[in-house]
Design a protein around this nucleic acid. Sequence first.
DNA 1: CGACATTAGTAACATATGTTACTAAATCGG
DNA 2: CCGATTTAGTAACATATGTTACTAATGTCG
Lengths: 159, 159
Amino acid sequence: MSSTVAKEPGGDDRRSLILERFTPYRIVALGHAFSGRLARVYADQNLTIPEWRVLAVVAQASKVAARDVVARTPMDKMTVSRAVASLEAKAFVLRAVSENDRRVNALSLTKTGRALFDRIATLALDFEDDLLSVLDSEERVVFDRALKKLEAGVAGVSD
Amino acid sequence: MSSTVAKEPGGDDRRSLILERFTPYRIVALGHAFSGRLARVYADQNLTIPEWRVLAVVAQASKVAARDVVARTPMDKMTVSRAVASLEAKAFVLRAVSENDRRVNALSLTKTGRALFDRIATLALDFEDDLLSVLDSEERVVFDRALKKLEAGVAGVSD
DNA sequence: CGACATTAGTAACATATGTTACTAAATCGG
DNA sequence: CCGATTTAGTAACATATGTTACTAATGTCG
């Protein structure tokens, strides 16, 4: 079945695509595995992943708008909107109409919201430590640098 | 090795969780971005992502069962089942009852299925080359090694 | 053999997520 | 100022994905 592919002059005969060696796929799969693990932590606290992400963004910078959350995470408007509504219903975030712009909701954490975030953050950081423990220090540095470059690479091309 | 960051005994002044620096999140987000890009390629060929994954697995090893696909990808039974049904309807894969075990579907690519796979594989590999072009050779090596370790790490803990 | 547990796959159901269209508020250009 | 355009957010709709329960075929062990 593998026909003898003649090497083109100047062109290399390409490697074939094997899923386990295809980098984008590997990263997606790895992310999927991480998500699964972390989802347990969130679920134990009655949070979905989008809710957790919103919580995390609002925890970092108070008075954020939903649109800021959209800009900083891989979630679209609607997902964020729903997560915010749910977090408000559970009294973890407050939604206040911004005075400057009354279209905007200024989001902030309630006391329980902050406590919840801190609790999950601790577990999440433990998880991260655990993950990264398989890498030596050189690998961590290079891995981090490579991630940064890849992030910049995909961010570059505008949608 | 994961609890040695706190400087004050008893005081938990751990680093705080910042989403953009949280490795699992970064990987998920990066994967999301990649998926988005690649999805265009598949969509141009009228394929969904699960369909593409099934196609890729079957392309590598003929006569695979749906359960093998489940084992090799981050998809559950049902997602694979649907993708296979759809691929069969489009005449890209064949489903034959295995003789040894008549519960099992032996999957294989049709001629058009193979052609489709080859076509997409070329585009996908181009995409990968493009991505990785931002990394120098040392970074690629270390990045690959780190990925392998992380993959092994998450595979280790059984569900 | 023959009840019982296990496995591959699917169907029916529930939920989650994305898409399009809309509303209210703000900004812009005259 | 005032109509036209943009923006933040949501609602209504469509689709996709996961969950549970079921069927058919094997395997197991008395």
